[in-house]
Simulated assay, not measured.
Amino acid sequence: MPEAALTITPDDATLAARVRDGDIRAFEQLVLRYEGQMFRLASRMLDDRAEAQDIVQEVFLTAWRRIGQLQDDAAFAGWLYRMTTNRCLNLLRSRQRPADIDPDATESPRTETRPEHAVQVNSQLEALTVALRELTPEQRACWLLREVHGRGYEEIGEIVGANATAVRGRIARARAQLAEVMKPWR
């Protein structure tokens, strides 16, 4: 059997424990594992790729500095989601006015190459982005964590500092509002 076949990728708990001991390579593995997810969350919450990059860098820098405060090494991903979400919510609350949306800055799935289909998909994505901006920051965070990142209600509650019932309510209101705005696209 080749050596590469025997390579086992360590889980989050193992890597976090190594990071606590000062292992930079373990931290690099965690960054590679979660950087894309944190960036997608931040960029969708903030509608600003540059701010999202700044937030993600701050989150990972904070994670490196405060790894000793993490009580459960297996909860590393939830810890990152919580830090990213909280930083985004703080930034959204501090903004004076909403940022303009740059449709070219959002990632668009390309399922077909027909121009008319691409125009329709881009229009739908732009409408969804505008609709997401109309949600409260808390609703947007809960909706994105559930619908885009697949997190459970309890975990979202831990991330945003609310109970599961409040999270369900925020998501239900967000879904209703989004469904109303997106009716023309059905």
Rank of each mutant, 00 (worst) to 15 (best):
Arg65Lys: 15
Ile67Ser: 08
Gly68Tyr: 04
Leu70Asp: 03
Gln71Val: 01
Gln71Asp: 13
Asp72Pro: 00
Asp73Cys: 07
Ala74Glu: 09
Ala75Cys: 05
Ala75Met: 04
Phe76Pro: 08
Ala77Cys: 06
Ala77Thr: 02
Leu80His: 09
Tyr81Lys: 00
Tyr81Met: 12
Arg82Met: 07
Arg82Ala: 14
Thr85Lys: 02
Asn86Arg: 15
Cys88Leu: 01
Leu89Pro: 00
Asn90Thr: 12
Leu91Asn: 05
Leu92Met: 12
Leu92Asn: 09
Arg93Lys: 14
Ser94Asp: 15
Arg97His: 13
Arg97Ala: 11
Pro98Gly: 10
Ala99Glu: 02
Ala99Ser: 12
Ala99Thr: 06
Asp100Pro: 05
Asp102Trp: 05
Asp102Asn: 15
Pro103Met: 07
Pro103Ala: 07
Asp104Arg: 11
Thr106Ala: 13
Glu107Asn: 01
Ser108Lys: 15
Ser108Phe: 11
Ser108His: 11
Arg110Ile: 08
Arg114Leu: 15
Ala118Gly: 06
Ala118Cys: 01
Val119Cys: 10
Gln120Lys: 15
Val121Ala: 12
Asn122Ala: 14
Leu125Asn: 11
Ala127Ser: 09
Ala127Cys: 06
Thr129Gln: 08
Thr129Pro: 09
Thr129Arg: 11
Val130Gly: 00
Arg133Thr: 08
Glu134Ala: 09
Leu135Asn: 10
Thr136Pro: 12
Thr136Asp: 08
Pro137Cys: 03
Pro137Met: 06
Ala141Asn: 11
Leu145Asp: 12
Leu145Gln: 11
Arg146Phe: 05
Arg146Gln: 03
Arg146Tyr: 03
Arg146Ala: 10
Glu147His: 09
Glu147Cys: 04
Glu147Ile: 06
Glu147Asn: 06
His149Phe: 05
Gly150Phe: 03
Gly150Val: 01
Gly150Trp: 01
Arg151Ser: 15
Gly152Ser: 13
Glu154Asp: 13
Glu154Met: 06
Glu155Tyr: 03
Glu155Lys: 05
Ile156Lys: 04
Ile156Gly: 12
Glu158Gln: 11
Ile159Leu: 03
Ile159Gln: 15
Val160Glu: 00
Ala162Ser: 13
Ala162Ile: 02
Ala162His: 08
Ala162Asn: 08
Asn163Glu: 06
Asn163Ser: 06
Ala164Tyr: 02
Thr165Gln: 04
Ala166Glu: 12
Val167Asn: 14
Arg170Pro: 00
Arg170Trp: 10
Arg170Val: 00
Arg170Ser: 05
Arg170Leu: 07
Ile171Tyr: 08
Ala172Pro: 03
